[in-house]
């Protein structure tokens, strides 16, 4: 292989670094998108033999969202191996203990259960907020779009925007507004 072809090979298989903002995102839906980048399945060179997985940096993992009561009924099981060593931890408890763990487990569970799994998980970097070390953020070249928009609260709108919004109906006269 000539020198130019060799450099071409390095360029094609360069590992990219992606950023994903997990704020208000479903961790289990996000894990599928994140894993696609960890595996390199978004690349045209992806195949069974190609080691082309990318790095993904997940920020704001403490602000992930779950539907309905899922924080209360989703349970994480662990067994120490000793008799009576089983523990069942609610999702909100686990999230309180370590805000990066739910999205880590979601990605770990969604990956293929083979020898590639640990290596791919090594390329996943999760941060609970948007403070990223400089040696990591300097590698990032692109960003993965979110799955849902972050909803805006009423206080996030300016007074002008609130007044501009069309009034759809009139309250009855006896209606009391706080």
């Amino acid at each position: 292989m000539s020198a130019s072809r060799r450099v071409q090979q390095w360029l094609t298989f360069t590992r990219q670094w992606w950023l994903f903002d997990a704020k208000w995102q479903d961790p289990f839906e996000s894990a599928k998108v994140i894993n696609k980048h960890l595996k390199g399945a978004h690349k045209p060179i992806f195949g069974g033999h190609a080691d082309c997985g990318d790095h993904v940096v997940v920020i704001n993992s403490q602000d992930i969202a779950m539907r309905g009561d899922e924080w209360y009924y989703r349970v994480y099981f662990h067994h120490t191996g000793y008799p009576g060593g089983a523990t069942w931890t609610k999702a909100w408890e686990l999230h309180k203990k370590d805000p990066t763990m739910i999205i880590w487990k979601a990605c770990y569970r969604d990956l293929e259960k083979d020898l590639t799994r640990r290596g791919r998980m090594q390329r996943l970097h999760i941060f609970k907020d948007s403070n990223i070390p400089k040696d990591i953020i300097q590698n990032i070249t692109d960003q993965i779009p979110q799955l849902r928009t972050v909803p805006k609260r009423l206080k996030d709108y300016s007074q002008e925007e609130i007044e501009k919004f069309p009034k759809l109906f009139d309250y009855p006269k006896e209606h009391v507004l706080d």
């Binding site: 360029l11 094609t12 360069t14 990219q16 950023l19 903002d21 690349k43 920020i59 948007s130 953020i137 990032i140 070249t141 692109d142 960003q143 779009p145 979110q146 799955l147 849902r148 928009t149 972050v150």
Partner: peptide, 23 residues
């Protein structure tokens, strides 16, 4: 390559970018 069909402004941007979060 990773840079094929990619907008050139990605080289100049500071991350994270709110505009790139749009689904």
């Amino acid at each position: 390559t990773p840079f094929t069909n990619k907008p050139a402004d990605r080289n100049m941007l500071e991350f994270p970018q709110n505009s790139l979060n749009t689904p």
